[in-house]
Amino acid sequence: MSPALSRETVLSRIADLPALPAVVGDILGAIEDEAETVERLVGRINADPVLVARILGAANAAAQGGRQRIGSLMDAITLLGFDRVRQLVLMTALVRQFQPLAPGFDPTAFWRHSFAVAVCAGVLARETAFGEELAFNAGLLHDIGQLLIVVAFPREFEAVLARMEALDSDIAEAEREVLGLDHGQVGSILAGCWRLPEAFVEAIDGHHQPDATNYEAYSNIVHVAEVLSYALDIGTVPRSAVPALSERARAHLGLSWPDVAGRFGEIEARYRAACLDLGF
């Protein structure tokens, strides 16, 4: 077996992954700065026929009851709202850019799981009065470390899968045993290189071990969201199982399951909507 991963080996292989699309960097870096970014984002979308088509498709699906067809980007933004459009652009650009091929890795299952955690994180954030959009985006990105692992270390990834199978354990546990780092830790190195805001670096880093880190809300939200997505069986595969939950993370957010249970239907519907919008 090759030596365990270190921060340096991870850093040396980041170029194995395609670059983060510019439009994604714009959206993630500029959430607080909306007015100035609208024009720039519209410009970027207009320059990208795939993004335009995706947004028009979603707008026409949403307006299916009405008679008029939505034919222009500005009409679609008016109908869907800028938040939804930003979300669609982010999902479309990420899914399109990151489709790694490796034995044992299914990109569609990967993105479905990411949508599921994003939807759960958004709803949990709203329940706990944290930023819904930031939480959704952190959920969308929480497993990016896995993309780098499958591309740059495919043999080690296969060993992780075998270990996970043998022990019926969480993937993160198997990664720490086989690689020395889990995909959250790898993802946080990647997020740092991509210069994503610190909230994302932390949320990605700690999502499997929130107790081992000392991060604030978003790491806890993504951790609990992931458990919830498995519990609700969204974005899962037949052999999926609910991963370990940090009781401390749940309590820290002040969430109670009976309260969250009132949102189960909404979570399922939003997940379905995200898959429909992305053509999954």
Binding site: A62, T78, L79, R84
Partner: peptide, 13 residues
Amino acid sequence: AVLAGLCRRGVEC
């Protein structure tokens, strides 16, 4: 008309 109105108001579910 109801559906179009809900959509414009950002109702998702």
